[in-house]
Simulated assay, not measured.
Amino acid sequence: MKNRSSLSLVLDPKLLASLQVAAAWRHLSVGDYAVSVIETATAMDVELAAFVQEGIDSIERDGTISQEEMEAWFEARYRSAAAE
């Protein structure tokens, strides 16, 4: 990728050690592991923000969000988290 940016972080020794262990477990460099974690977390947050906005829009439009929709969303999130 041509348009890449770097990110400098200050980590305490315990977090750095955990990061190194997790990266090694996944057979990734610390940098590649950090990018993977950031990609996953931001994708989840974007999905959550869109879902919340969908709920807000639904409530403003219809006054409710169905229990089935909420349960289906939580089930999908649970399965996604369990797969990681």
Rank of each mutant, 00 (worst) to 15 (best):
A72Y: 06
S6Y: 10
I38K: 08
V30K: 01
L28F: 00
E75P: 09
L9D: 02
D57L: 15
E60L: 12
I65L: 00
E75N: 14
S18R: 07
D45S: 11
A17V: 08
I38D: 09
E39R: 15
V30E: 02
Y78I: 06
E75T: 15
I65V: 05
S29Q: 06
R79Q: 14
A82T: 05
A82H: 04
V21I: 04
L7A: 08
E68M: 12
H27T: 03
A81G: 03
P13K: 10
A34G: 02
W73T: 11
D62A: 11
M70C: 12
L15I: 03
M1I: 09
Y78R: 08
A24S: 04
S80P: 05
A22V: 05
A72S: 12
E60C: 10
M1K: 12
V35H: 07
A34Q: 03
E39L: 13
L48W: 10
G55N: 00
S6F: 09
L28E: 03
K2L: 13
S36M: 10
L7S: 07
V30I: 04
A34L: 02
K2V: 13
S18K: 07
A17E: 09
T42G: 11
L28H: 00
L7V: 11
E69G: 04
S29K: 07
D62H: 10
I56Q: 04
E69W: 05
V46F: 01
S8K: 09
D57V: 14
E60P: 08
L16S: 03
I56L: 06
T40R: 15
M44R: 12
A22M: 07
A23W: 11
H27Q: 05
E75K: 14
I65D: 03
L11F: 02
T40M: 14
A43N: 09
D12N: 05
A43L: 08
M1E: 12
